[in-house]
Write a protein that binds this DNA or RNA. Sequence first.
DNA 1: TCATCCCTGTGG
DNA 2: CCACAGGGATGA
Length: 257
Amino acid sequence: MPELPEVETMVRGLRPHVVGKKIVAVEILDPKLQNMERTLPLPITVASLSRRGKHILFDFGDQTLVLHLRMSGRVLWSKRRPAGRVRLSLRFADGTVHLVDPRRLGTAEVVRGFSDGLGPEPVGDLSWLPPVVKESRMLIKLWLMDQKKIAGIGNIYAAEILFRAGIAPDRPANSLSRAEVGRLRKAIPAVLEEAIACCGTTLEDGLYRGPNGEIGAFACELAVYGRAGERCRRCGSSIVRTVLAGRGTYACPRCQR
DNA sequence: TCATCCCTGTGG
DNA sequence: CCACAGGGATGA
């Protein structure tokens, strides 16, 4: 579920509660997570909390707790155990971080040194992007969602970025013109930064919330995602849903070529 | 580059 | 009942 803006929202919301604070107890409530190989020596102080792609990193200095929320996970801060399927709890003196994950696809592991195969972050300077995109024969939407190419973009934001750039999702990456790659390069950080400013996207199911219960207001800004059959806000055409690599794919057939 | 699987929940 | 869901590893 959560993509970069949602994970970023969770990390920002959690930071003041956990950085410099001690975890006094860890509770693993889902046997699937027993492969949190190493056990943390408790109590242990959180040196910093950060995001890399869609991963959440609790840094303890020599060890790192890495969470990945996959489709349905979220983290929240509360004094008491929340409703829903809690899989992991990190208890601090004045509250607890809960990993809630109804589909149980999320992962948690303790590692020494987080070495990932992730591509660069999709914010900031993207001058590296045009040459790399022009080299790939992947469909552009799948390229955007490939974490090894660029880290943090998922199904919602791939659709929104491509709408913003005016590019059809099923175009091979190496078929994009110079101008199109230029628009893509600008659209990626623009869409993600707007979404972060909105605290992400809470869909109608309400599954995603920020760690303190915030609603992700970017749902109101979605131009194409989840809008099959509705009017394009720019040209009035009907938004079309297709399937690419098994994922629902939304686009305006007129604005995106 | 794909289908499939991992899981569970929801909605048609 | 079946289709589908903010992700990603795997194997053909």
